[in-house]
Simulated scan of single mutants.
Amino acid sequence: MEQKTRILIVEDDMIIAANISVQLSNLGYEVMGIETRGEEAILHATANCPDIILLDINLRGNVNGIEAAEQIQKFKRIPIIYLTANSDEATFAKAKATRPHAFISKPFNSLNLQRTIALVVDQIKDNDMDTLEVSDNLEVLSDRIFVRHNGKMVKLLLDEILYIEADRNYSNIVTSNGNYLVSTTLKLVQNEMKNHSFLRVHRSYMVNISKLDVVADNHLEINRKVIPLSKSFKEHLLKHLHTI
């Protein structure tokens, strides 16, 4: 039997929240709860890890929906669908920066809700297939990663990582304190760490750009290690270096 998709509703209008809850239950989803404040949403999401969060942007209280999303994503990568009656560009830009899966504008109808959630569920299933290998061996948080090493998950601070080298279907994570080989391809590692200061510079290498000692025409150096720099990645790297 297929497990139900679990959804947390964060909406401070209880009439709207209750209506959404009934609709989702009728569609076969599991409603994990209703929260009306950003603070409670953060606690609920980090403790219970729902599959999707329906999150109102304009929550009353000290923490709005965007701020709640930012805090949740420091600990859990949970797909977010924003509910909003506010369409101004500044709010949209702030919300977009949290990388939501979708927006639903208020007022919305049942069909709009149904179709949006169905599309996000399909995205989650596709991503699960693509990142299954990663999830078992690599967990990326805001300032650290956990890698499976010698049968246990080991914490590595992102600032300790110098570069990551591909080794067929494995990745060798090189730190200032040692190396960690994980059974995850470099492409999947790249997808997981794209929001951090790591860039692909060659088909076989990703580097921590804060650790670069030398940038030459066709190679880089980190801690005396010479790393090849491909032409196809060079422009992207230089753009990032100019912004830091």
Score class of each variant (00 low, 15 high):
70 E>R: 10
214 V>T: 11
6 R>L: 02
165 E>T: 12
29 Y>T: 02
229 L>F: 07
198 F>N: 10
215 V>L: 15
203 R>T: 03
107 P>C: 10
137 N>W: 11
2 E>V: 14
182 V>S: 06
23 Q>M: 07
163 Y>E: 08
218 N>D: 13
133 E>S: 14
196 H>N: 07
36 T>E: 09
123 Q>N: 03
153 M>T: 03
115 R>P: 01
165 E>Y: 13
119 L>K: 04
224 R>T: 13
219 H>A: 08
31 V>Q: 12
21 S>H: 04
157 L>G: 09
100 P>T: 00
233 F>C: 13
89 E>H: 14
107 P>S: 11
189 V>P: 03
90 A>F: 07
209 I>P: 10
122 D>N: 11
94 K>M: 14
65 G>I: 14
23 Q>H: 02
113 L>W: 11
156 L>N: 04
70 E>Y: 09
238 L>W: 07
202 H>R: 09
211 K>C: 02
185 T>R: 11
205 Y>H: 15
197 S>T: 11
24 L>T: 05
16 I>D: 13
29 Y>G: 07
155 K>D: 08
40 E>S: 13
236 H>F: 02
136 D>I: 04
200 R>M: 13
105 S>D: 10
239 K>H: 06
52 I>H: 14
131 T>M: 11
159 D>R: 10
10 V>P: 12
160 E>L: 12
50 P>T: 03
163 Y>N: 05
82 Y>L: 13
148 R>T: 05
39 E>H: 12
192 E>A: 13
41 A>M: 08
214 V>C: 07
24 L>S: 08
4 K>I: 04
183 S>L: 06
158 L>C: 10
25 S>I: 03
59 L>A: 02
189 V>R: 00
111 L>P: 00
34 I>W: 11
63 V>Y: 05
37 R>I: 01
147 V>I: 12
117 I>G: 11
100 P>E: 06
22 V>E: 09
82 Y>V: 10
142 S>H: 08
166 A>W: 03
116 T>D: 11
93 A>K: 15
119 L>Y: 07
28 G>E: 11
46 T>C: 15
135 S>V: 00
205 Y>I: 07
225 K>P: 00
138 L>E: 08
200 R>Q: 15
191 N>H: 09
219 H>R: 10
60 R>S: 09
56 D>G: 09
105 S>F: 14
127 N>S: 02
161 I>C: 04
66 I>T: 12
238 L>V: 05
145 I>V: 09
192 E>N: 08
78 I>C: 14
